[in-house]
Write a protein that binds this DNA or RNA. Sequence first.
DNA 1: AAGACGGGGGG
DNA 2: CCCCCAGTCTT
Length: 360
Amino acid sequence: MVNVKSPSVKTQFSSAAQDLLDWYDKHARQLPWRIGPQARKNGVMPDPYRVWLSEIMLQQTTVPHAAPYFEKFTTLWPNANELAEAENDDVMREWAGLGYYARARNLHKCAKALAELERFPDTIEGLLALPGVGPYTAAAVGAIAFDLPIAPVDGNVERVISRLMTIGGDGSATGWAADKKEITQCVQALVPKRSGDFAQAMMDLGSGVCTPKSPNCGQCPWAKYCLAHREGNMESYPAKAKRKPQPIRKGRAFIVVSEGKVLLQRRPDKGLLGGMLMPLSSEWIEAEGGTDIPFPLEAEWQAKGQARHVFTHFVLHWDVFVAHVDARPNSLEGDWIAMDKVIDSGVPTVGKKALKLALL
DNA sequence: AAGACGGGGGG
DNA sequence: CCCCCAGTCTT
């Protein structure tokens, strides 16, 4: 256990933090939601709304994937009040493809909560009270938007600190929960006055230099402090989580086309792909052999192949069928979307795969 | 403490 | 193909 209060450790940490800031001043990524280090030194601070929006999008999501969504959202809804007044269907449609759709529902809920407040919460407790904002996001927004003296701890920070201090590597005796607590204490002890830039520097370092595999230690401002680097054992930190094999679920997609339009239905708010538009489908079941799934209506169903999609905890094998019918069946509720528009109508990626098989 | 919850990128 | 994720909420 590192004693973060010992004077010699404090001195080392202070020097390491400064080295990181110096590196960040030279190498900071330019990102759509970011105010660069030079501007921040001149007193320019980012709009908390944009910081919050970016951090929600960046949960379990890479910068290149999130960036175009950020541009679209801020164009459509430049502030929390505008987002609060949006139709929920529009918010869900624009989120389609980003994944973890509970984030989108919480995003809209949060915007409505923000619209009721006099100003954006600028304390950790205030931020934590917002829907969809957990310990990481509260710390990130607090530090980046308000320079609160706190360090957000995400996967990048865990990896960087794990290596810097050789905490929680393969074969750690203490267990990951205790290791993570120690990592959090360490990075908190490192936080300098420029806490917002420090937080962003840690993300840039983890993302571009202290990468999970083949870290670029030659470019790292912390190589001279890094205990894992000294051991030459960087990739043993942090310990890799053991992964369970994912079961296979099977089902059938039923793409119904009538008068040049395709039927989509909105899924219930709770659960997988909650609140999203999807083509008709059977249930997705873990089944041993073949599945005998009934069709939802009498028609000439044409088999179009199998869409495969990896979810968090299972793999879907989705047999896609299409039927062209003369009249819209009265028995089927939903939205009818023009065939040439339906692929980009706000359907999650798994639904897109099935629609492409059926229509292209 | 464990499970649910998407999707894409890299080697 | 297998690895890695810029987490939060529920149970």
